[in-house]
Design a binder for these strands. Structure first.
Lengths: 339, 339
DNA sequence: ATGAAAGCGCTAACAC
DNA sequence: GTGTTAGCGCTTTCAT
C-alpha cells in the first residue's frame, strides 16, 4: 500500500535546486527570497503536490490553528455538540479536530488527561473536553470543559441548568398524577447526572413522596446497562408508572424495554428523557424530554476557547444555559389503579 | 496560559537519573532494561504524569493506530456517519480522529487531498474520505471513500443506491398524482447527486412528463443556497406541486421556505428528502424521505479500511447499500386544480 | 544493561 | 538572497 512514500520539503528543494530553508520561507511567506525563486519554488510545489506535514510543522512551531475536541464516544449528545462547535469555528481561521476515545470502558477514566498530554503543546492550540471525568488539568494550552465531572473546577465551563430541567420533568409527571416515579440515572461521575438526580429528589420531596432506593437505578448512559436497569425497574414488585431517565438514549432504551415487557407507552408507562437529541423524535412514540441547548453549548465552548487562545478576556468563565421541558407522546396520566 | 510547559521524555529521564533512550525502552516495553530501572522509571512517569507526544512519536514511527476521518463539514449526514464509524472501530485497537474542513467555501475543492498530504505517513495509518471532491489520491496510506466525487474511482468505496432511491421517491410522488415535480439538487460534483437527478429524470420520463429546466435548481446541500433555490422554485410562474430535494437538509429548508410563502405542507406542496437523518423527523411536518443506511456505511467503511491497513484482502472494493422510501407527513396528493 | 547519537520533516537563527 | 545549522520530542541502532 506504500505507493508514494510521501513528498517532503527536501524533495521540493532538490527538484527546485534550492535549499530546504528557502522552500520553507516560500511556504510561510517569509521575507528574504527573490520573486523569481519564490515563483519557481511555488511551481515545483504545485507540480509535485506538496503539502507540509502537519506533524512536523507542529513539532517545530507551537501554533497550529487547530482546536481539539475530546469526546469519550461519538454518540448523539457529543455529535450534536460537534455540530455546534463547527458553527462556532466558522470564519475564525481555526480548524477542528475531534478525538474520540472510542467509548472503551477500559482505560476510560482519565482519557482526557492522557489525550491532552499527548496532544497539547503540539498539534492543537487548545481543547474542548466533553463530559470529562477529570478536570484538574493544567497543561500548556487553554481548555474549556463541557458538562464536566462533579465538583467545582477552575476550568472555564459550559453546561446547562440540569437541576431545573430535572425538576421540570418530575413536576410535570407529578402533575399528570404519577406517584411512583422511578429514575434511571447516568454516568455517576458527572456533575450533570448528580444534579438531575437532585432535581428528581427535590421535586419528589416537595410533593411529599418518599424516594425509596428501589426507585433509583444506574443506567450509566450506556445502552446495555440502561436496558438491564430499565428491566429491573419495570419488573419489580411494585413497578413505577413513570420513569425519568437521565438522558434520551436511556429513555429510548426504557421505551424499548417496556414494549418487550408488553407495556404500552404512555398508556401503561410514561417515560421522560433528558437532552432532546434529534433521536428523541425518532422514538416510538416520540419522547417527552428536557431540552438542553446542545448545539449552542458547542458553539459557546468554541468561542470561549478561541478567546482564551488569543489571550482575550472571557466575560464569564462559567456559562450555564437554560433547560426546558418538551412534551411529546411518551407521557400521559398513569393508568387507573386496579387494586 | 503557558503554565506547565509540557513534560517531555527528557524531564522523565533527568528525574529518574537515566537516559532518554532507557525511558523510551521502558515506555515501549523493549528488552534491555533491568527490572529495577524499569520499575523506577515507571514510577517517575506516573509521578509526573508523562504521556508521550503523539506528534513526536508519529514523526518517528510510521504506525500510529489512528484512523482519520476527513469530512468537509460536521452536518447531519457526516455526524451520522461518524457514529457508524465509531461502531466499526470498537475493539479494533484503533483510535478515531475526525478532521473537519469546517465547511469553508473557499479552498473547499481539494481539501481532502490537502489534508491527506498533511496527515498521511504520519499521524494516521489510513483515512476515510467523506464526500470527497477528488479521488485520484495515491498517498502512502490506505484510503476508503464514502459517497465520492463523480466518475469511477480506483479507491475502495462505500455508497448507496442513489438512482433507485431517487426513482422510488419520484415514482411515489407521481403515484400520488403529482405532475409538476421539481428537483432541488445538491453539490454538483458528487456522483450521488448526479445519480439522484438521473433517477428523478428517469422516473419523470417513464411517466411521459417532460422535465423543463425551470424545474431543476441547485441547492448545493447548503442551507442558504438551498433556501434561495427553493424560493425561486416556489414563486415561479407555474410552481410545482411537489419538490424532491437531494438531501434532507435541503428538504427541511424547502418546507420552511414554503411556510414563509404561506404554503401548507403537504396540502399545498409535497416535499420529499433524501438521507433519513434523525433531523428529518424533527421537521414539521415530519419529512417523507429516502433512507440510506448512513450508520452502516460508516461502519463498513472503517471495517474495510482496517482490513486494508492490516494488509488483509477486501472482498468487495466497492459496496453499494440499499435505499428505501420512508413515507411520513410531508407528502400528499396534489391540491385540486383551480384553473 | 545503559547511553550517545542520528534522524523523522520542518522552521528560525544566523552566517555567508 | 540564499544556505548552513540547530533543535522540536521521540525511537532506534550501535557502542560501551
Amino acid at each position: 500500500m506504500e505507493l508514494t512514500p510521501r513528498v517532503t520539503i527536501r524533495d521540493v528543494a532538490q527538484r527546485a535546486g534550492v535549499s530546504v530553508a528557502t522552500v520553507s520561507k516560500v511556504i510561510n511567506g517569509r521575507y528574504g527570497v527573490s520573486a523569481a525563486t519564490a515563483a519557481h519554488v511555488q511551481a515545483v510545489i504545485r507540480q509535485v503536490g506538496y503539502e507540509a506535514s502537519l506533524v512536523a510543522q507542529s513539532l517545530r512551531n507551537h501554533r497550529t490553528n487547530v482546536i481539539g475536541i475530546l469526546v469519550a464516544d461519538l454518540e448523539p449528545f457529543s455529535t450534536e455538540l460537534l455540530k455546534g462547535a463547527a458553527d462556532g469555528i466558522r470564519d475564525s481561521g481555526f480548524e477542528l479536530v475531534v478525538y474520540s476515545a472510542g467509548g472503551r470502558a477500559t482505560d476510560h477514566e482519565g482519557w482526557e488527561r492522557r489525550y491532552l498530554s499527548r496532544l497539547s503543546g503540539t498539534l492543537i492550540d487548545g481543547a474542548i473536553l466533553v463530559t470529562p471525568t477529570v478536570v484538574d488539568v493544567s497543561h500548556g494550552s487553554p481548555v474549556v470543559a463541557v458538562d464536566p465531572h462533579a465538583g467545582s473546577t477552575e476550568l472555564p465551563t459550559v453546561d446547562s441548568d440540569n437541576l431545573k430541567g430535572a425538576r421540570l420533568a418530575v413536576e410535570y409527571l407529578l402533575g399528570l398524577g404519577h406517584r411512583r416515579i422511578a429514575m434511571l440515572t447516568g454516568r455517576p461521575d458527572l456533575q450533570s447526572v448528580q444534579l438531575r438526580e437532585d432535581g428528581y429528589r427535590q421535586a419528589m420531596a416537595a410533593a411529599g413522596i418518599p424516594v425509596t432506593e428501589d426507585l433509583v437505578r444506574v443506567g450509566g448512559f450506556e445502552a446495555d446497562q440502561a436496558a438491564r436497569a430499565a428491566r429491573e425497574l419495570l419488573t419489580a414488585e411494585d413497578p413505577p408508572t413513570a420513569v425519568f431517565a437521565a438522558n434520551d438514549v436511556s429513555a429510548i432504551v426504557t421505551v424499548t424495554a417496556a414494549a418487550q415487557l408488553g407495556l404500552r407507552v404512555p398508556a401503561d408507562l410514561s417515560v421522560v428523557g433528558f437532552d432532546n437529541v434529534p433521536e428523541s423524535v425518532l422514538c416510538v412514540p416520540p419522547l417527552t424530554t428536557v431540552e438542553q441547548p446542545i448545539h449552542e453549548m458547542g458553539r459557546l465552548a468554541t468561542r470561549m476557547l478561541i478567546k482564551l487562545i488569543r489571550g482575550e478576556p472571557v466575560d464569564r468563565p462559567h456559562v450555564t444555559l437554560d433547560t426546558k421541558l418538551i412534551v411529546r407522546q411518551s407521557s400521559a396520566a398513569p393508568p387507573a389503579r386496579s387494586n
